[in-house]
Design a protein around this nucleic acid. Structure first.
Length: 569
RNA sequence: UGCCGGGUCGUCUAACGGUAGGACAGCGGCCUUUGGAGCCGUAUGUGGAGGUUCGAGUCCUCCCUCGGCAGCCA
């Protein structure tokens, strides 16, 4: 790898630096690791990645890119009882989709099992590790409590030879699961419980997704992680706050083994979002108990769910940047996530017209059988995209909400006697409507158009307050549209009211399926994953899974901001 | 009563010891062929008490307060 100090220091001066980048800047200045910056993203393949992981991915890979360094993707697969290849595959897909590239840096902690084992023998040889026969229960008692020191294991002073012999026999499968552990010999009276002779190897007969049945002993996280970082030459090992207490152990292992390099562990606060749960365990429960359709349900905060919902990689990266990096625990407002996707899509998504809750409009003075092609601007924010044609005719669909028999104050859409603009078409005035007397439901409305206002402007210069969207009835096709809302209606779903569970905070209206939506024909061949704005409604994405050729199903990504709805509250 | 780490606008996040700034949310206005977008304006913040200093969010002392840690999970 070309190592160019000029480039490494190219991190713009004067721009606000988070505390991690500040540390790296300083390390570069003092030459701590030469000019190298090497990070890693180390997921355990026991679930799908979520938006919180996205923050970590953007941080680690972002730093790799900014400092002209590297970033590894390393699967932390030291506990075969919980890990599966399905998760490995989804994680790689998600990282790639977010726009990051690990290059040659794809690793598995399980790649290092032999080396890790050899290091453990070295620890034994140095008198720094011992085989312990305490049961899990006994060990818990010997460990002491948060305020009281622990007691030393009766097996703590076995000879080096005995430890070596026993450890080798652990490996060769002589002892049953859980009957023995290898423990680091540190300090049972430490105030830090992680330092009270922590277990570094346990006996566990389980099928490992990569090494199969080759091993029946597996290293623990604290032991495996620091050594994996070291073996890969990681310079900055960035993790979340709950590992802060583990740093002394991280350092102890590397110091005791006198390894050739010693990565620096740096902890930051994980991402929390209001109205959202981020715990893998709970997300898993939502899936297995059928509260959602899967890990990629568009309401899930998983990368797969967000992707299916219509979020773009850029919007998530921008979100991660806005959220910032610090040690203070915080809860981000989901509105910031929504802002990020709106910002991206407003600039980049095509516009189209779709009517979700249709109401028939007949333009009584418009000739029957005539079809006009109106010029429709593809994206007003991006004039270069130009325009396309949309059919207009005598009978149209409009949104039921865009008509009121008796308007409330401030309402400036369609009502008897009022004139509005039909987007990119004509000025239209409501002259009457028909109503089903039995149900009180308005069944169709009658209007007249001003032929002089073609395109949406009147030559006499008169103005209208409202512009509404429409779809030609003869040309529309019906489609399923799913309206998604936040999965939880409680600001902190983890804190249920008394006597209730966190699942009671689920929003019963998080999904509304609409079946007779009228979409303009342009959308008929929308490819799975196609994202556009349905004018005045929001951004919608053709579902990746359920769309069929010529028969797209749309998911609402996010609504447009709606100040009218707010005024009405 | 153990160890570790936090407390800056409503929410996040900045500020060589030198005018507390930005974003989102809010509010007001302008503009608008999306009640969208955009533009302009606006209010709200250094947990507390002392101390050092010409000057403290920043340094020192004490206090208050919040979070994490007792898996053979990561």
């Amino acid at each position: 790898m070309a190592e160019n100090p000029e480039k490494n220091n190219g991190a713009a001066e004067g721009t606000p630096r988070d505390f991690i980048r500040t540390i790296i800047d300083e390390d570069l200045r003092t030459g701590k690791n030469g000019t190298r910056v090497h990070t890693r993203f180390p997921p355990e393949p026991n679930g799908y990645l979520h938006i919180g992981h996205a923050k970590s991915i953007c941080l680690n890979f972002g730093i790799g890119l900014e400092y002209n360094g590297r970033t590894n993707l390393r699967f932390d697969d030291t506990n075969p009882s919980k890990e599966e290849t399905e998760y490995v595959d989804s994680i790689m897909e998600d990282v790639k989709w977010l726009g990051f590239d690990w290059g040659e840096g794809l690793f598995y902690a399980s790649d290092y099992f032999q080396q890790l084992y050899d290091f453990a023998e070295q620890l034994i040889l140095k008198g720094k590790a011992f085989v312990c026969d305490l049961s899990a229960e006994e060990m818990r008692i010997y460990r002491g409590t948060l305020t009281e020191p622990g007691k030393e294991s009766p097996w703590r002073n076995r000879s080096i030879d005995e430890n070596l012999d026993l450890f080798r026999r652990m490996r060769s499968g002589e002892f049953p699961d859980g009957s023995k552990t290898l423990r680091a010999k540190i300090d049972m009276s430490s105030g830090n419980i992680n330092m009270r002779d922590p277990v570094i190897y346990r006996i566990m007969r389980a099928h490992h997704h990569r090494t199969g049945e080759e091993w029946c002993i597996y290293p623990m996280y604290d032991y495996a992680h620091c050594l994996s970082d070291m073996l890969e030459g990681i310079t900055h090992s960035i993790c979340t706050l709950e590992f802060e207490d583990h740093r002394p152990l991280y350092d102890w292992v590397l110091d005791t083994l006198e390894t050739p390099c010693h990565p620096q562990q740096i902890e930051f606060a994980r991402l929390n979002l209001n109205y959202t749960i981020m715990s893998k365990r709970k997300l898993n429960e939502l899936v297995t108990k059928g509260f959602v359709s899967g890990w990629d349900d568009p309401r899930m905060p998983t990368i797969a769910g967000l992707r299916r919902r219509g979020y773009t990689p850029a919007s998530i990266r921008n979100f991660a940047e806005r959220v910032g990096v610090a040690k203070r625990e915080s809860i981000i407002d989901v509105a910031l996530l929504e802002y990020s996707i709106r910002e991206d899509l407003n600039r980049n998504a095509e516009r189209a017209m779709a009517v979700l809750n249709p109401l028939k409009v007949i333009i009584t003075n418009y000739p029957e059988g005539v079809i006009e092609e109106m010029e429709f601007t593809i994206n007003p924010e991006d004039p270069e995209k130009g325009s396309r044609k949309v059919e207009f005719s005598r009978e149209l669909w409009i949104e039921r909400e865009d008509f009121m028999e008796e308007p409330v104050k401030g309402y400036f859409r369609l009502f008897p006697g009022n004139e509005v603009r039909f987007r990119w078409a004509y000025f239209i005035k409501c002259t009457g409507y028909k109503k089903d007397e039995a149900t009180g439901e308005v069944t169709e409305i009658y209007c007249e158009y001003d032929p002089e206002s073609r395109g949406g402007n009147s030559p006499d210069g008169r103005k209208v307050k409202g512009t509404i969207h429409w779809v030609s009835a003869a040309h529309a096709f019906e489609a399923e549209v799913r309206l998604y809302d936040r999965l939880f209606d409680h600001i902190d779903p983890n804190k249920p009211e008394e006597g209730k569970e966190w699942t009671d905070n689920l929003n019963p209206n998080s999904l509304t399926v609409l079946n007779n939506c009228k979409l303009e024909p342009y959308l008929k061949n929308a490819q799975p994953g196609y994202i556009c704005q349905f004018e005045r409604l929001g951004y919608f994405c053709a579902d990746i899974k359920d769309s069929a050729p010529g028969k797209p199903v749309f998911n609402r990504t996010v609504t447009l901001r709606d100040t009218w709805a707010k005024v009405n509250k």
